[in-house]
Computed example of a mutant assay.
Amino acid sequence: MGLLADILLVAGTLAVAAYCYVLSARLRKFATLESGMGSAVALLSAQVDDMTRALDRARGSAQASATGLEALTARAEMAAARMEVLLASMHDLPSPDRATDSRPLRFIRRKTSRAVEEDAL
Rank of each mutant, 00 (worst) to 15 (best):
S61D: 05
A46N: 07
L93G: 06
P94K: 11
S24V: 05
T13A: 14
R53F: 12
V41Q: 06
R53Y: 05
Y19C: 15
R28Y: 13
L69V: 01
L86S: 10
Q63G: 07
R28C: 10
A40I: 08
D92A: 15
E77V: 03
R53W: 09
V41I: 11
C20D: 15
R98G: 07
A31V: 07
V85G: 04
R53E: 07
A74M: 00
A79K: 06
A58E: 08
V22M: 05
T67F: 01
A81Y: 14
S95Q: 05
P96E: 06
A74C: 00
S95I: 11
Q47F: 02
R59H: 11
T52H: 09
L27R: 13
A58N: 04
A25V: 02
L86A: 13
G36A: 11
D92V: 03
S24W: 15
L55W: 13
A18D: 12
C20V: 15
A74S: 01
T67C: 02
A58I: 06
V10L: 15
A58V: 10
V22T: 09
V10R: 15
D97C: 04
L69K: 14
R75M: 08
D49S: 11
G12M: 13
M83N: 12
A80K: 08
A62T: 01
T73L: 03
A54R: 00
